[in-house]
Computed example of a mutant assay.
Amino acid sequence: MSDDDADESAEPMDSEDPNDDGEQYHLEVGPGDVADSVLLPGNPERVEKVVESWDDHDVVAEHREYRTATGTYDGTPISVTSTGIGSPSAGIAVEELARVDAESLIRVGSCGAIREEASVGDLVISTGAVRQEGTSKEYVREDYPATADYRVVSALVAAAEELGYDYHLGVTCSTDSFYAGQSRPGFDGFEARDSDEKIDELRQAGVLNFEMEAAAILTLASIYGLRAGAVCTVYANRVTGEFRTEGERKAAKTASLAVKYLAEMDGAVEDADASRWHAGLSIER
């Protein structure tokens, strides 16, 4: 029988939704495969570096750019799913993780700083993101804010402080292009229209860094009622011209510890019979 005949004889799907059977179409994870909190690096090879500081882990799925592992960090359930490069694939990850009951998502990556004070090897913890990418615009109007959940930001700051890492807190710019979109020259010196003006405007507005996924993750998480945040290690400083892959594991260690703190924050809310975590509630340090 030919491949064409096989296709014609296949049973029709009961639903247009490719995830109808519970296993997600792209991530290939199902209910119970991931913890409530999931770290989101871009590079699938970074998954093994993320889990180095965990107590244990198992790789539960691997398909295309998406590699997922689940384990524990200091006794706290935790997962990691790589998203590939850019907001379109990161948006797919958010969609499918939400469908298998993930509740907290933390982007873990690298970035280029556009302010001198954010040195190579430092961390940038995003409070929000400029939506200079197209994926989130497919979901909601352009003036809808991409904001990080205040609990995730608090947990990331607490983790960076505990680990003794230098970090910066502020707004990130997410782009669809590593080159033209981030005001870098393209092939043969090509420069995008208004390239210099764009980066100057962002600097003057206090934007700290460029990367390619945070805005979509934050926007979709907000729409779906999930907690989300982002922490990136600075690899490049666009002001000083430095570029080094330094401190690669800092963001992963910070995010992993932040997941533990989020669990403790949730416990403090339950113990206090409060409606949500606030600064008046303590967490164990």
Rank of each mutant, 00 (worst) to 15 (best):
G121F: 05
A118Q: 12
S9N: 14
E133L: 05
D143K: 00
L40F: 11
Y139F: 06
D149G: 01
V80N: 05
G280S: 01
I114P: 00
A155W: 06
A160C: 07
A69V: 07
A148T: 08
V50C: 08
G75A: 11
L40K: 09
D266Y: 02
M1N: 11
A228V: 10
L40E: 01
R203I: 12
T172P: 09
Y66I: 05
E284L: 10
K250A: 00
A148F: 10
S104C: 03
D5L: 15
R184L: 05
S119I: 09
R244M: 14
T233C: 07
V269M: 01
D143T: 06
H278Y: 10
D273Q: 13
A221E: 04
D101W: 09
A214D: 15
S119Y: 12
A6Y: 15
N19K: 02
D5T: 14
I114H: 07
Y224R: 14
T70W: 00
G247A: 06
L208C: 06
P185N: 09
A252Q: 07
A159C: 05
V207A: 03
D58Y: 10
Y235M: 11
E197F: 12
V51F: 07
G280C: 02
H57T: 13
D5S: 15
A118V: 15
D33E: 07
S104Q: 10
A6S: 15
T219E: 07
S177N: 09
A258I: 10
A215L: 11
Y150F: 15
A61N: 00
E16S: 11
T135Q: 12
C111Y: 01
R249C: 10
V124N: 03
G164N: 04
E138S: 12
S9Y: 13
D194P: 14
L40S: 01
S9C: 14
A230H: 04
D196M: 11
A252E: 00
D166R: 13
V60Q: 01
E284I: 12
I78E: 01
A113R: 06
L27D: 04
E264V: 07
P77E: 11
R99M: 12
V60R: 02
V269D: 05
R64L: 02
K137V: 15
T76E: 08
E65D: 11
A93K: 10
A221L: 00
S53P: 06
E264W: 13
